[in-house]
Design a protein around this nucleic acid. Structure first.
Length: 288
DNA sequence: AACGGGAACAACCGCTCCAGG
DNA sequence: ACCTGGAGCGGTTGTTCCCGT
């Protein structure tokens, strides 16, 4: 409708991200920081849409992502927050350090929705008794229905989810990932530990040169170091990115980015207490 | 061992908001 | 005040994995 698409889709990679793409994106963001997503792919040498890069970083590559299963405490908190906030996944995720809105949304759609349904067999709650993604009711229909029934419902005033306009920068970002050379130790460590021998796509010299250019290296520097850097990238290709990052300490908090560094550490118990508190308005008349 | 169905998760899409010019 | 681009959000789709038959 007259609006240019966020990016030209021609010539762009789509679908699953490769280990090399992950490495390039991670290294670029660690070197230059987040933001400017639209121009990031070009500057980083990625054939991806900016939105895709942002999503990949936020949902998968960010160092403070908490991997692994949702704990019981977290699950309970998600249920409570969903009861309170509805499908405002980003808001819910904001109260679960290390969890992404996408992860919580998926978890709800696959797991908690069923539990929620089982807990209310009478179907008293329309919001929880209908699978959000399996619903045949289109969004516009939902909107028209909600507006048409608004008068019959208690007053609910909701704003859009608050955006986080500030980037929380960990105080001691390991610089290794920004420099492929320094990541070699990870591969060495893995080799010594009998790490994965899984094969990943190889990086050619042109790719390396482009990456180096995008990271601000001048041509002379690339000429001198290009082959060396390329070798490092190629050797890195032999290990999964996650393992490299874990060894980097950034994923585990070992010597890198612990949640506390982000000021994002929250006590689930205290949150649960908060939700129990009478100071919280009930869902029926909450104003967010 | 092969196949089918469902679950889980990653990624994409369209819409909206907001800040800056 | 208006316009535009950047960015964020929630819904939806696609792909992979797992398990039962």
């Amino acid at each position: 409708m007259g609006r240019s698409p966020c990016c030209s889709k021609e010539g762009l990679n789509r679908g699953a991200w490769t280990a090399l793409e992950d490495k390039i994106l991670t290294a670029y963001i660690k070197a230059h920081g987040e933001g400017k997503w639209r121009s990031l792919p070009k500057r980083a040498g990625l054939k991806r849409c900016g939105k895709s890069c942002r999503l990949r970083w936020l949902n998968y590559l960010r160092p403070d992502i908490k991997r692994g299963n949702i704990s019981g405490d977290e699950e309970e908190l998600i249920v409570r927050l969903h009861n309170l906030l509805g499908n405002r996944w980003s808001l819910i995720a904001g109260r679960l350090p290390g969890r992404t809105d996408n992860e919580i949304k998926n978890y709800w759609n696959t797991t908690l929705w069923k539990k929620s349904k089982a807990d209310s067999p009478s179907g008293s709650s329309k919001e929880t008794s209908q699978h959000p993604s399996k619903s045949v009711v289109k969004k516009k229909d939902v909107e028209s229905k909600t507006t048409s029934t608004a008068a019959a419902k208690p007053l609910v005033i909701r704003t859009k989810a608050t955006r986080l306009s500030k980037i929380l920068v960990p105080q001691n970002i390991p610089t290794a990932a920004a420099n492929p050379l320094e990541l070699q130790s990870h591969q060495t460590q893995l080799a010594e530990q009998g790490g994965s021998t899984e094969e990943f796509p190889r990086t050619n010299a042109d790719d390396c040169s482009n990456i180096l250019k995008n990271f601000g290296c001048d041509d002379d520097d690339i000429d001198v170091k290009g082959d060396q850097y390329c070798n490092e990238f190629q050797s890195l290709d032999s290990i999964p990115l996650d393992e490299a990052m874990i060894n980097d300490g950034c994923w585990t908090g070992g010597n890198g980015c612990e949640l506390e560094d982000y000021g994002a550490s929250l006590d689930l118990d205290s949150l649960a207490f908060l939700l129990d508190s009478e100071d919280w308005p009930s869902q029926e008349n909450v104003i967010v």
